[in-house]
Design a protein around this nucleic acid. Structure first.
Lengths: 195, 195
DNA sequence: GTCTATATGATGATAGAC
DNA sequence: GTCTATCATCATATAGAC
């Protein structure tokens, strides 16, 4: 029985998905190819096609993965037990993690510009992703205002979608300009929300 | 001397630029090709290369055109003579025009996700575009607060970059979801800014 | 000066080897 | 089940016709 000198490539599928996610969030969906993935992993492009027959399939898997991750995160007891301002901070931490990781943008920010060129299943899944994230934040905001720990005018759901839109944009700003611009936007948000 | 039955195609260059702008703002930079342009204009791809030798050249021309347009707009006497809230409304009108025009995104929103794949000259020009737009809005906000016609906390420049980021994101939201989501964000902004 | 025929390489995908 | 050799198509770009 030969020794395993290199990763068994048994998890080629997982490695493809992880690398594809990185490429999506750092370069954009229409800016990476199966060749990029294959070269980086030391396999042939057709091997990628085996695991994800078409790029549409790969793209859909990427959005589904993020949606699953969102649901898991949102329901963590560690998170649900926090106060609204703490939950908001947890969200901001996640976004800041994107900035630190090679200035990634969020899923929405990565796909919005190219949205019309995406397969329909991917479009639909992204809408679900956004809806669930917005609903979660709206709930946090509603409780936060009721307990006087967060301050804002208007409806929680309008404020939620406005906030998430700003956060998605802020990651794009971090990419085009720098981290300083990003922090300026976040500090402005905190200034307005936290009494 | 033969009659001109069809547009003389003397302005092929201008038609290319106009169509490229539409494709950029509706589909994304990496999602359109010289073939798309050529087919739509009834010419050969190589004819596009004559006017814009490389796609990098075309992309740079697109950003430069938008920058020139911004400067012209910003300095219009019709605009500079308005009050700050009116100037803000003029800005919002421009963005809403994008939504109505096939749900276009703004230049920044179209290029941010793919930013790393863009030629350096294009990256630099987009940064200038954003900087000038932000500086203009910061000035409007500063005067608006000084005259008590606009209300916000924090520095005018931080508020300006936050607002523009939200607007860029709002156009992306309009594309992924619908016009209603867009209006919700804009109304939230107005609610917070206008006393 | 303006455009078309043509080349070169990348891209997404299939059929078949191991 | 997993991957490689190969393909048709599309992308950008050049050389040369008008």
């Amino acid at each position: 029985m030969p020794t395993l000198l290199l990763p068994p490539a048994a998890d080629t599928r997982a490695r493809i998905l992880a690398l594809a996610e990185e490429l999506l969030l750092t370069r954009g969906f229409n800016a990476f190819s199966y060749q990029h993935i294959a070269k980086e992993l030391g396999i042939k492009p057709a091997a990628v096609h085996y695991h994800y027959p078409s790029k549409d399939d790969l793209g859909l898997a990427l959005v589904r993965r993020q949606l699953a991750r969102l649901r898991k995160w949102r329901d963590l007891p560690r998170l649900t037990s926090l106060t609204p301002p703490q939950q908001l901070d947890a969200l901001l931490d996640t976004y800041f993690g994107h900035v630190q990781a090679e200035r990634r943008v969020c899923l929405f920010g990565a796909l919005a510009a190219d949205f019309r060129t995406l397969p329909e299943a991917m479009q639909a899944e992204l809408r679900i992703f956004n809806r669930e994230l917005t609903e979660w934040l709206a709930q946090v905001l509603a409780v936060g205002r009721a307990t006087a720990s967060l301050r804002f005018v208007g409806s929680p759901s309008a404020k939620a979608i406005q906030l998430l839109t700003t956060l998605a944009g802020a990651l794009q700003v971090a990419r085009v300009h720098d981290e300083r611009h990003y922090h300026q936007i976040i500090e402005q948000l905190r200034l307005e929300l936290l009494p």
